[in-house]
């Protein structure tokens, strides 16, 4: 293996970036969300009119903006990984800080959405659609918070110079988790806000 390859990717050839344990966790999370997504889809199949009518009261703009926000924060994390692979730990920390900031924007937009719904008297028991909408998005919301905590821990270590071009598994591990959070929203948005 060449030195150049070692510098670009710290993980073993053929395996994904980051710690193997995070990938087992990611696939377990995907399985859980997959069951949740399919439960929503099949519940909708038996209540099409209710789901279509309730969906019209969602703020589709917020959902779309949040998709852009998460995709962009994921891209910032890509830049953080690229920076640390080039041995630039300060730049890595800056990109991670920007990604965390966008994670915060996502949470604020989502909180406005939740506030609007709760203020209108909508709750988990309003109907089947809102039970799924609220539980799915709150479940995802908690994953965003966890992802931000992980990225913050990685950022602080990167700022202290705890990673370098040869040793940055921690950055790739945090990045992989954050991309999963993004991936889940990429499916959640069309499923809940668009498909009718």
């Amino acid at each position: 293996m060449s030195t150049q390859t070692l510098t670009l990717d710290s993980h073993k050839p053929g395996t994904p970036p980051g710690d193997l344990a995070i990938w087992l966790f990611i696939y377990a999370e995907l399985l859980a969300f997959g069951v949740f997504f399919l439960s929503y889809a099949f519940a909708r199949a038996h209540n099409v009119e209710l789901f279509n009518e309730s969906q019209q009261h969602l703020n589709r703009e917020s959902g779309a903006i949040n998709t852009v926000v998460l995709i962009t924060s994921s891209y910032f994390v890509v830049r953080a990984v690229a920076a640390i692979r080039a041995g630039l730990s300060r730049r890595c920390a800056h990109w991670l800080g920007a990604a965390i900031g966008l994670g915060g924007v996502f949470l604020v937009i989502k909180l406005f959405e939740f506030h609007a719904k709760f203020s209108a008297g909508i709750s988990l028991s309003t109907n089947t659609f809102y039970m799924f909408y609220l539980s799915l998005t709150i479940f995802h919301f908690m994953h965003v918070i966890l992802g931000m905590v992980i990225l913050a821990a990685v950022m602080l270590k990167a700022r202290r110079g705890g990673y370098n071009a040869e040793n940055h598994t921690g950055v790739e591990t945090g990045a992989s988790y954050w991309h999963m959070v993004d991936l889940l929203w990429i499916i959640l948005f069309p499923l809940v806000y668009v498909i009718r």
Partner: peptide, 28 residues
């Protein structure tokens, strides 16, 4: 190293990011 990163990793991912934004626009 930085040049390697740009050509092998950053540029393709930048194109993917832009592509994702366009596809999100279509879905919206």
């Amino acid at each position: 190293n930085i040049e390697n990163q740009r050509s092998q990793f950053i540029r393709p991912c930048t194109r993917v990011w832009l592509g994702l934004l366009v596809l999100t626009g279509i879905t919206y």
